[in-house]
Amino acid sequence: MKWIKVGAFLVMVGFLVGVAAWMHPFGVPWASEMDDYFIANAQVEAGANNVVTSVVFDYRGFDTLGEATVLLCAVVGVALVLRRTRR
């Protein structure tokens, strides 16, 4: 049982490292048209120097809305789990 686990883990690690080693070369992104548009137009359209901030809050604002919802749910869950129980 132990050896099956170790073998499966080694197969998984070999797969991960092999995929990483045989991917497209580091430093040459594969498709970057959207990012080129963001870098070229973010200063005019969103008015911010920081392109990452303009992507987070302007172009992909719905992602940030969902993220804020997840954070709110996590805080509510922690408050619910750790509530004061009377016994």
Binding site: P29, S32, M34, D35, F38, I39, A42, V51, V52, V55, V56, R60, D63, T64, E67, V70, L71
Partner: peptide
């Protein structure tokens, strides 16, 4: 590229 960084920011908070 700025988009992977923005999505990573989302991923870190989650």
């Amino acid at each position: 590229l700025p988009t992977p960084q923005a999505l990573t920011l989302t991923s870190i908070v989650i």
